[in-house]
Design a protein around this nucleic acid. Structure first.
Lengths: 163, 163
DNA sequence: CAAAATCATATTGCGCGCAATCTAATTTTG
DNA sequence: CAAAATTAGATTGCGCGCAATATGATTTTG
């Protein structure tokens, strides 16, 4: 019975639009949490969190990146990455070392354990794929729409030149 | 040079599927962060965070709910909600009181300020709607797909009776 | 009715995520 | 070349999000 006060206190906005934006925001919010919950039991045996796993995936794509580079790819800053990478190093998945040619930078490289985890990840991916229960086309469409959405949102926050 | 090792170390999974699940997961992850970033400057003037705003939206739909009820709707537990509601109360948006007929429960009700915020939210919604830059149909489709995805993921984590 | 089980909420600890601040290294300027 | 500006990381503080635990209140059981 959440539908009892349909137009009670909102009279400034077209009726149909009322909940739409909210629904999308909440849908993204919930989906992110649900994904996190789904990954957790799969990653727990490896002592990894979902954000840590994402960092590893990024390094599997391209090893030996800087903290800054990872942050740009992932949309995270050093306040998030520094402690996360420290924990990944303590867990033995990565190695951190200052770049000799530019001592400001820290190069993040995979250890043997970090590389080996890539093979373990195959099983995790299968589990996740099964859990989503989506067809390839649906996955592709969803992903593309979300990427487009993210792009528009971020272009609006980094520079608001839209009149 | 992220495309130099196309099939290097993964040989257990069909090629095209390789990155798809990852992409979806990362897309949801990124979209959630992007939404958060978009909301932040809009909510800051009111001293609200995005999760707090979501709780208010829930209460606008139905006021006078219990902590447990809110948690069920939002997929959050008391460990998250208790301190969040405390802050919402401290900020003057809600009131918390033990249910006299069952002293275990805490009833959460909107204050005048909490109700008033609903009108302020109209402007926020317009901004968000504009920031998404999506057509109504795209928003609806995206929302529906995400809800379906969340539903499947959660049904898998709460009870794994698939196969 | 009293003990046990259940239930609603609160608290603690840990890991993000982000703003703000700090330090050290490099680059730019004068 | 030295001062100023920029850059890369690290640190601190705060608010989620969640597991684990604790505390009272209610219900169930014996």
């Amino acid at each position: 019975m959440t539908d009892k006060r349909d137009e009670a206190e909102t009279d400034d906005i077209p009726a149909g639009m009322l909940a739409l934006d909210q629904q999308l925001c909440f849908a993204v919010y919930s989906a992110a949490h649900a994904l996190n919950r789904t990954y957790k039991p799969l990653l727990d045996p490896y002592g990894l969190t979902y954000p840590q796993y994402i960092v590893l995936m990024t390094l599997w794509e391209e090893d030996g990146r800087t903290v800054k580079g990872l942050g740009t790819t992932l949309g995270l800053d050093s306040g998030t990455l520094s402690p996360l990478l420290k924990r990944l190093e303590a867990a033995g998945y990565i190695h951190r070392a200052r770049d000799r040619s530019d001592e400001r930078q820290v190069l993040v490289t995979l250890t043997d354990k970090g590389h080996a985890m890539r093979r373990e990840a195959v099983g995790i991916r299968l589990q996740i794929g099964k859990a989503t229960g989506c067809s390839i086309e649906t996955l592709q469409a969803l992903t593309a729409d979300l990427q487009a959405l993210t792009g528009r949102l971020d272009s609006g926050t980094t520079r608001d030149d839209d009149t």
